[in-house]
Design a binder for these strands. Structure first.
Lengths: 108, 108
DNA sequence: ATAATGCGTAAGGAGATGCTTACGTGTCAA
DNA sequence: TTGACACGTAAGCATCTCCTTACGCATTAT
């Protein structure tokens, strides 16, 4: 019964979970409101939400018989930080393209 | 024998594979040079590289009996794009913090 | 030619993942 | 109180993941 902690990268590796986070960008939502966007069963949605919860990417708050899930975007920082490490590649390419365009097709 | 295609997000979900990509930032490397950074067996490293290859995150080129792996950073774009969708949260927080600091602790 | 090197692939197994259906529990409504 | 609702959890299953050891196949060195 050990709860494995795959971390944020594991949590976002499933497309359904990324879509769930995307939905929550627009505001807190109860499970049913989330579930209606997916083909899978509601328990399956609950299980995905549990993964997101364990990763700290969402929190839940009880409102009556609902549980509203709220995005915790700061928890995506490890992803942001890691990908930022590669940012210079895009920067370089962009800079190269810009330079190319600014030269006005002058040679090469 | 179906080759599952977990995509880029699946490929970067394993810490070892992220480290492999990080290593390749500094230049192409043959498998042994990559493998010496990990505790796991060399075949395990090969299998991870295969996942990265299938995701298009690296290419391989044969040089004699070596196979050098090369990073293809552009393939990280889906990740960059997805995370960029959340950028405004950091921007907002950063802006809020900056505003707070610039105000010089004036009230609140 | 023979051996050593660099690497992939095959096979197998432990454990994780992702789904399902069945059920339990707390909350609101009649 | 009785039932409907919103949800989690349990159990079971198929499949995937990630590792290992054993082996095969080029390429280079002797």
């Amino acid at each position: 019964m050990i709860h494995t902690e795959p971390g944020v990268f594991g949590a976002i590796s499933h497309p359904a979970r990324r879509r769930m986070l995307d939905l929550l960008v627009d505001g807190d939502r109860p499970v049913n409101a989330i579930a209606e966007n997916f083909e899978m069963s509601r328990p399956a949605v609950s299980q995905h939400l549990r993964v997101l919860l364990d990763a700290g990417l969402v929190t839940e708050q009880r409102h009556g018989r609902e549980r509203r899930y709220r995005l915790v975007p700061e928890q995506l920082e490890p992803v942001r930080d890691w990908i930022a490490h590669y940012e210079r590649f895009w920067d370089d390419n962009f800079a190269r393209l810009r330079r190319h365009l600014e030269k006005g097709d002058k040679q090469q």
